[in-house]
Design a protein around this nucleic acid. Structure first.
Lengths: 251, 251
DNA sequence: GCTTTGTGTTACATTCAGTTACAAACTTTT
DNA sequence: AAAAGTTTGTAACTGAATGTAACACAAAGC
């Protein structure tokens, strides 16, 4: 899991700027495991050096830095580049939050933080800034066919090949869509959460399990022995079927 | 999954840079046995010579070198090439770890190290930097046939030639897939772990033995006298059967 | 033969996923 | 706006898959 998760392509190159060595180490390890390439810097000078040498996709910036504070750095970066920034601040300082956003940060999170949450926010920011809004992709009356099913993304309906309409809840539909758009690929719970919701969420670890279970009961012949959504222990879930794209809406 | 770490094509060309002759020898022997091509260098000058003459896939670089230290070498290499680098450092120097990463190393390991762990990390780095999706490759409705068995990689199912479906766990399936994709080849436990899991793992030495045992009980006629998965004492295991690839899914 | 090393296996521990049952949030109806 | 229904979230329980240890035995070396 994190799978690592998905060893695909590195998900992006992050830069962590914090003077606390432990935090740098922690984040580095965590994000690396999650498939990101990670560089770190302890202060503004190091940061600038790295930023000028690499194509950075996102910066995690601590508000409190020796010498130059994070806020002014953030403001300045904003002028020169378009690299999205996520701010880190100490707990409870409501003020900082506001100031962080004013400085042009794309998101903000307070220490002590949950790495999972930070990761979720980072994904969300990357998604926003890369403008691959999950909803935009799927918005085109496309119909995805797999197994016996036709999943109409425009109508947001699932029909069986014999024409029966199956009633899916929003969450179920989104989840199934996530699977259908990434067939034959192991998707971690984090990824699914991310793909299905498309917005920041601090999940109960097993939301997805539950959702998968519910979905299985609706689309699998025998939910106990699923043939469509396969579970990969320690990894996540995978839609095993081949998916065909049909541009015309279901009859 | 690396289709490339097969005996005929070397899994990659590694360069070990360390002034300690013993370490060079050890790593050279170990990695060569694991299917890698290995060059060694004792200092920065030798290293540069080799790097400019060969296509190197990964460099194992000691932090402590005579003359020029590894860290500055690492930083410099980073600017000129994209060769991934794994740093070696003496135990316990947290500082070094951080500096190693900041210098642009892709991974880091402390001496005295477990060669097995180093190998695992090297594989992980190669996988990351080559951007090969472990699952994506195998995802093509391919069916591998051997002995009486049909292993459907898309469906993730194992069926007997008479149509009986055998229930394999995820780990068992992955292991069998590893065998089927490298038939008639002795695979070390490390290789199997890597092929089957595709992610960094520092294993209990006998995970694989256990898994093989369990697998045998499911697919061998007489598990005590296996005909498919053969044990190579001191080496690992080997699938003796010939494997045919069938593009069509099982009926 | 006896020792050493490596493998097979049994038996148990641990981790992880599936599910039930209920609580909380959200919608719709009245 | 209260009530009823629906969907989603959480916890706790259960069983299955996998990891670990320990022991038995076989092969290789002496």
């Amino acid at each position: 899991m994190g799978m690592n998760d998905v060893a695909d392509t590195p998900a992006g190159h992050l830069l962590v700027v914090d003077d606390d060595r432990e935090i740098r180490g922690l984040l580095k390890r965590y994000f690396t495991r999650e498939g990101y390439r990670v560089s770190t810097a302890a202060n503004g000078v190091e940061m600038e050096q790295i930023v000028s040498n690499w194509k950075i996709d996102l910066i995690v910036l601590d508000l409190m830095l020796p010498g130059r504070d994070g806020l002014s750095l953030c403001r300045e970066l904003r002028k020169s580049t378009h690299v999205p920034i996520v701010m880190l601040t100490v707990m409870g300082e409501e003020d900082d939050r506001i100031r962080g956003f004013e400085g042009g940060a794309d998101d903000y999170i307070a220490k002590p933080f949950n790495p999972r949450e930070l990761l979720a926010r980072i994904r969300a920011v990357l998604r926003r800034t890369r403008m691959v809004a999950p909803t935009a992709e799927r918005a085109h009356g496309r119909v995805l066919c797999f197994g016996d099913w036709r999943l109409d993304l425009g109508m947001r309906r699932l029909t069986s090949s014999d024409g029966t309409l199956v009633d899916l809840s929003t969450a179920e539909f989104d989840l199934l869509t996530a699977f259908a758009e990434h067939p034959q690929q192991v998707l971690s719970r984090d990824q699914l959460l991310d793909l299905a919701r498309g917005k920041l969420e601090i999940p109960f670890d097993r939301k997805i399990d539950m959702q998968v279970s519910r979905l299985r009961h609706k689309i699998e012949e025998d939910p106990k022995n699923p043939t469509l959504i396969h579970t990969v222990r320690g990894g996540g879930y995978m839609l095993t079927a081949e998916v065909l794209i049909d541009e015309k809406p279901a009859a």
